[in-house]
Design a binder for these strands. Structure first.
Length: 225
DNA sequence: TTGTGTTTTACGACCTCC
DNA sequence: GGAGGTCGTAAAACACAA
């Protein structure tokens, strides 16, 4: 039996010339691929999942050649080229393409339907990748902000401790001074706090004994609100 | 070689538009 | 109502690891 080899496919077809056109003919029944795929002949009952080919129809369909024919590279290339120009397929164009490629118009229509579906899936994937990238960027920014918040909270806590220590010292000084002959006027004078070397908070506090507690309350409000 | 996952071709059901 | 669209899926074809 003659065979037609196209790519890795081997078809039981010969190529005949007729009226200066190439006709592909099935060696088994003399039909052409286009003839075979005419809608009425091609229609088949769909088998349910898990069913096997046991009845005559199924055997004939499975045993028959080209029940499902893979398009040639050339046909696919032409279809792709056509799809690039226009994704939709009006009737005249469909007939023209089908004629040029030796395919049934129905095959061309189906190919375009499937191609549109693939194109849509690809677009969706691209869109998903884009959104995911944006999402990742936002999450990263959020992490950075959260770590910054933690760092600042620690610094604030340290500052509060420092203030408490200094407040204790201040109280000590004022107690000592009131019992000694040297009196220290602590009420209105600005106090130059000596901050711990590890802290860099050069916050100018001008506070008296009276307003210290108020300031501590202010810190606490800031801290927990 | 065979099992398995992916791609391609084809179809049925349903929807929209003219 | 018919033509042509989408959607979901069956099944053949194909790729590839084991």
């Amino acid at each position: 039996m003659d065979q037609m080899v196209l790519g890795s496919q081997v078809y039981p077809y010969t190529v005949q010339t007729q009226h200066s056109q190439c006709i592909i003919v099935n060696q088994i029944d003399g039909s052409s691929p286009a003839e075979e795929s005419k809608p009425v002949k091609r229609r088949r009952k769909r088998k349910s999942k898990g069913s096997s080919a046991t009845n005559e129809d199924d055997v004939a369909m499975i045993g028959g050649m080209f029940r499902k024919r893979k398009l040639t590279d050339e046909q696919v290339n032409m279809l792709e080229y056509s799809f690039e120009n226009e994704h939709k397929l009006e009737s005249g164009r469909k007939e023209k393409i089908a004629g040029e490629l030796g395919l049934d118009p129905r095959q061309v229509a189906v190919w375009f339907q499937n191609r549109r579906a693939r194109w849509k899936n690809k677009k969706l994937e691209e869109e998903y990748a884009k959104l995911k990238s944006q999402h990742d960027t936002v999450v990263l920014g959020q992490c950075q902000l959260e770590s910054q918040v933690l760092k600042l909270t620690d610094q604030l806590s340290e500052a509060q401790n420092e203030i408490r220590k200094l407040s204790g010292r201040l109280e000590e000084l004022s107690t000592n001074s009131s019992s000694s002959s040297l009196s220290v006027e602590a009420n209105d004078a600005p106090i130059d706090f000596e901050f711990a070397p590890e802290t860099n908070y050069n916050i100018p506090f001008y506070m008296s004994d009276n307003n210290y507690l108020q300031n501590m309350e202010y810190w606490d409000v800031c801290m927990y609100n």
